[in-house]
Amino acid sequence: MADRSASITSQFTGAGLGRSSLIFWALVGGLALLGGLLGDSYVRHIFILVFIWCIVIASWDLILGYAGIFNYAQLVFFAFGAYGSAMLSIYAGLTPLLAIGAAALVGAGIGVLVAVPSLRLKGEYVALFTFAVHLALPPLIQQGRAIGMGGNTGLLGIPWLNLFGFQVSSIDKLTWYWVSLAFGAVCVYLIYFVILRGRMGLAFIAMRDAETFAQAIGVNEYKYKLLAFVVSAVFTAVAGGIYAHYTSVVTPKVLGTEFFLMAMVMLAIGGMGRFPGAIAGVFTVVIGNELLRSFDDYRLLLLGVAVVVTVIFFPEGVAGAFKPKPPEKAE
């Protein structure tokens, strides 16, 4: 028992973080340059959506893929972020950047509200409950007309983003490209490199892989599951806020089936719980969806086929395909 001070090195104690951060930010830098090179504003628009989706899907991956909680209320957090930020900037006159920050707080509150009943439930019942919350929200928003939620038509004329006195209109796709990339990159970095590679990440994985064992080695299940909901909701609400100020319109359609299914498809194709699977899924699905636009009516069919093929041949998603093969067992 020689070296008594030695400890275990792992990615959860910061090993290799410098190197992978470098790669990450180099890629982000590459994307930033790409924005300048892409001349077409429609293509930029697609990338802006990709960056916003990345935040949503990374947050969903955090709770569903890493913490193993069957939360299907992800777009609820998104909707509250979008509506919260929109209403705060329209009615309270908050500058959009501040409104997005406030939306994050709204998200945290909603995260707690959804979490508390969910934490009393097990496994698939969490899925039922959270999806019920998702389904219950559109009628609530319609009733919310009285408090200025705009009912079915939604909220129009949401103020443009104001960056240090500079108004960013929705038409200014290049600035928006960089703004959404910056938000997306920071959120994704915080989620995958800071939160999930720290204590919280290890707690999530422990609860997902071996719930009882995790409790036995001291993981406070209630605390970490609550944190999973809150963290996931905060980031998703930020994404909702950015989305609201980018499109300057929010309608109950953000809770529509198409959005929800797209998000599911991104996670299924990308693969959950293994970075960068979910992010790769966002790029693949959004860009693939655009490339398939010429197929018109067959687009959804082709997307469906893509999901089926992925699920059958790459059950762990795109990320799983690149997983190193386990070495042959030595006898």
Partner: peptide, 12 residues
């Protein structure tokens, strides 16, 4: 914790 290493199980 089957998706991490042996060392990370102890670390947890």
């Amino acid at each position: 914790l089957s998706s991490v290493t042996v060392g990370e199980n102890l670390l947890a």
